[in-house]
Every structure is written in structure tokens, then in C-alpha cells.
Design a protein around this nucleic acid. Structure first.
Lengths: 241, 241
DNA sequence: CGTCTCATTGACACCCTTCAAACGAAGTGG
DNA sequence: CCACTTCGTTTGAAGGGTGTCAATGAGACG
């Protein structure tokens, strides 16, 4: 029934010779400086975490590993994904600066995470976080409201997957991503067409065709594959309402 | 996983005693007695809520309404759904006894809820809940972990919608629902084919055809539309792994 | 028996996947 | 400087799965 040909997964582990601190966990006291520089000193979590860096395509954690940390993206972009039994990849979510990764972890990670660009993260010990939340209602409520935001994002994702056509899914993705990076006109996409396809439940071919169609209608300009300009955001939004 | 799964028999008694109160919110002091009789006094939420009853197909709350309450299903089954711009319905989730409804509410309800059967719920004031959570870390953590469970359910839903064929989606639905009601063999479905279709992003026709196909393969027995028997649960699970 | 609702089944059209090929950019080596 | 490779992307052609349209079947109820 399922043709095993199109493996969405492109496991690229060849990104080597990453300069300096990439891939290393820095000491907590060095975080203080980094966090301040990154403008996240105000976060109630910054004192619980350590800064880690990963290169583009480098794994942050693997599916099934013991979930010792949750992460907050500081710089760059992260994708979380699962590899299905037939070898295909399902991208669960794209994570941008400020977003949490694996906040829902419980025991083992249920998906893998890797950088789409060079990425800086705050790695927070899950055990310490729950302990602190048990004594700090404000923190516990922050964790609750953050999880609820993830839940709403996931529900919106499910609704898109359930009901929209390919062109509408791509439009929805563009509109949603533009809103998240707070960019009205020009978008710099950290993800490949394959990432988008695996996120939207489509093939790379259909994503490409849909973008071409949107461009032919004058709704977008996607001449550079990683740079998309939204010409008619209102019309795009109406497409996927 | 399931909360208060042992209260079924008690709640049956309770339903009789308040049978004349369908559609009405009972006074809080009457709840105290009702909750105690129903055996849910141990819940940290029971003292915050009042019992409400709704008939099959009756609205619990509407999309866009001010979200004053969150709910916990005591008895019966609830569907939450959105009506899309083209008039189609997207079922967000089916809620069974113990499940919370609209725990993610923030301002206005983002979806509507109605009973699929006659249903008894605990209606908990959102304002009071958040106030209490601010002073009670254990409650805040309960809310967090409950939201995380909903998040995982939603992510699994999205994964099904993104990657599985019609037959696989139906199989996944049956397996998942069987696990939730802890029934290995025979399932009593509270939902119609249309509900299933709107949950799985399919049409009622495709759902019906898929069930017929599963039956022709000997995996299930679906002669009564609301009563399905899973003959080969392992094979069903493998279908949608 | 008639009506209503829900469910099943068939025929056909269409959208998306699959298979296949080609393009462009970046990197490598001759 | 130019072949040649590699990777990501785009595009074309054909096939299959699911939606649409239509008709029929099955219970529930008056």
C-alpha cells in the first residue's frame, strides 16, 4: 500500500569541523554573559539553564533518548521530527527564538530535534525545572501557559492538515511563519522545501508546484528558494481561512 | 492516564438524581453533595466546580463565546469542533470521562463543544482556577501535566492527518479509541460516521468504505454502525504505526 | 406505511503522489 | 577556465486515492 521510495529524511551528519564551542555545553556562569547578550536575562529560566550551540543539521537530541533537558531557542531555528515506520519523516514543529523545545517531554523524547541553521539554545534540566515549579507557582503557571500555546499551535496544525488543499496548506504555512517572525513582506526561510513538505504532509514536488502556482497568481515572489516575498498577505490569508 | 475511571457506577446514580436538571448549572453548595456522592471529592478541582448536564447533541459552549469555565467530563462523551469558512466542520477532539474540555481556553473559546451522548460535566470557573493555581503549585503542575497530555494527543492527531491514508487513519482512530476506553475487543462508539470523518479529515463516504475494507480483510466486525469489534488489534496497530 | 436520519455503495472527476528528467548553484579537480 | 559532481529545486507525464454526485439500504419513530 505504501510505496517506500520517498524518504523524507535527509539525515545530514556530515556537518563537521564546527568551530569552537559548537556542540559543547558551556558552563552556567558563561551563560550569564551569553544570556545577557542575547537579551533573555529577564527570563525566569535563564538561571536554570546552560547555553548550547549546534550547527545546521546537527542533532540536538534524538527520538527515544532520555529527556534530561528542555530547551529554549535563543538564536537560529530548530525542527523537531519523527521518523515513521515506513521511513518517512514527519516534521512536528519549527521552533524560532523564544520558543521552547520538548517542553512536553516526559521520560523519553517523543521526537528528535536538530538545527536548521546554526543555533544557540538554553538547555534547562527537566528535573530542576519541575522541582522549582513545585515551589514557584508563577513558574508553574508560565509552564502551563506555554504548553497551552504549543497546544493551540498543534491544533491549528492539525486543522490545516485535515482540511486544506496543497496550495492552501502552503499559503497557511507562509502566513503563519510570517506572523511568527513578525515580517510582513520578505521572509527568510530557514527550512528546505523538504522540511516544508514533511511539515505539511505533502511531497516536495507538490510544495514546489504550489509555490509556483502562488507566484503565477501574483500572491508571492519566490525566485530565491529561501527568500519569499508575500505580495498579497490578505489574499493569502483568505486562501486558508 | 484516565482520571477517575472508577466513578462510572457512582455517576450513574448521580445522573438519575439530577435527571430533571438538564441544561442547568446547579448551585455550588448542591455540587458539594453531588460530588461527594459521585466519588469525585478527592479531585482537587471538585470544590471549584459545579455539575452540569447536557443532552445528546446539545451545546455546552459555542465557538467565540467568553471562556468562563473549563470542564471535566464525568459521564458521557463530548466532541469539540470548529466550523470553517467553507462551512465544513473540523472535529478537534473527542472527550471521554476524566478528560478536560477547554483547558486551553484563554479569553474566548476557540471551538465549540457539545455532547455526543447525554453527558455530565464538572464546570470549573476559569478565573477561580487560575487564582487557585497561583497559590497552589501542585494544582498548577496538574494543569501543566494535563495540558501536556492534550498536547501529545494533538500532536499524534496531526501526525495521523499528515501521513496516513484513509484506511490507516480509520485504523488509527479505532486503535486509539479502544486504548482510551480500555476495551480490547468490542467498542461502543458514541460518535457518528460524520464525526469520525470530520475528525480524520475525510468524508463520511471514505470512512464507511474504509470500515468496509477493514471488515472484508477480517480485521474488524462493524455490522452495527455504533458497535465495532476489533478482531485483529495487532494487525490494526501495524497498519498505522 | 411514510418519513427522517444515518450509513453504505457505485461511477466518475480531480488532486496529489509517483516516476522521470532537467535546471541552477556551489564545490572540486583537471 | 571548464568539465564534472552533488544537492536542492523545478517541471512534466501518468497513475492512484479520495472527493463529489447519485442512488440505495437500514433503523427509528409516529
Amino acid at each position: 500500500m505504501r510505496h517506500e521510495k520517498s524518504l523524507g529524511a535527509h539525515v545530514n551528519l556530515e556537518r563537521k569541523s564546527i568551530a569552537g564551542s559548537h556542540g559543547q555545553i558551556l558552563a552556567a556562569h558563561s551563560l550569564a554573559r551569553s544570556a545577557a547578550e542575547a537579551g533573555i536575562a529577564a527570563s525566569p529560566l535563564s538561571t536554570l539553564g546552560v547555553v548550547v550551540c549546534r550547527g545546521a543539521g546537527e542533532e540536538i537530541f534524538g527520538e527515544g533518548e532520555a529527556a534530561q533537558h528542555i530547551y529554549q531557542v535563543v538564536h537560529g531555528a530548530v525542527r523537531t521530527y519523527q521518523i515513521l515506520s515506513d521511513g518517512r519523516r514527519q516534521v512536528c514543529e519549527f521552533h524560532l527564538p523564544g520558543d521552547f523545545v520538548a517542553l512536553d517531554a516526559d521520560g523519553d523524547y517523543r521526537y528528535a530535534a536538530e538545527g536548521m541553521t546554526e543555533v544557540t539554545l538554553l538547555a534547562i534540566r527537566r528535573h530542576g525545572l519541575t522541582q522549582r515549579a513545585a515551589a514557584d507557582p508563577a513558574l508553574a503557571q508560565l509552564l502551563w501557559s506555554t504548553s497551552v500555546r504549543s497546544l493551540r499551535q498543534s491544533q491549528a496544525h492539525a486543522s490545516i492538515l485535515a482540511r486544506l488543499s496543497a496550495v492552501e496548506r502552503v499559503a497557511a504555512f507562509l502566513v503563519n511563519f510570517a506572523a511568527r517572525v513578525e515580517a510582513r513582506g520578505a521572509l527568510d526561510l530557514p527550512m528546505t522545501r523538504q522540511d516544508i513538505a514533511d511539515y505539511l504532509g505533502l511531497t516536495i514536488h507538490t510544495v514546489s508546484r504550489s509555490l509556483s502556482l502562488l507566484q503565477s497568481r501574483g500572491l508571492i515572489d519566490a525566485r530565491c528558494s529561501r527568500h519569499v516575498r508575500l505580495h498579497q498577505p490578505v489574499a493569502l490569508t483568505q486562501l486558508c481561512a
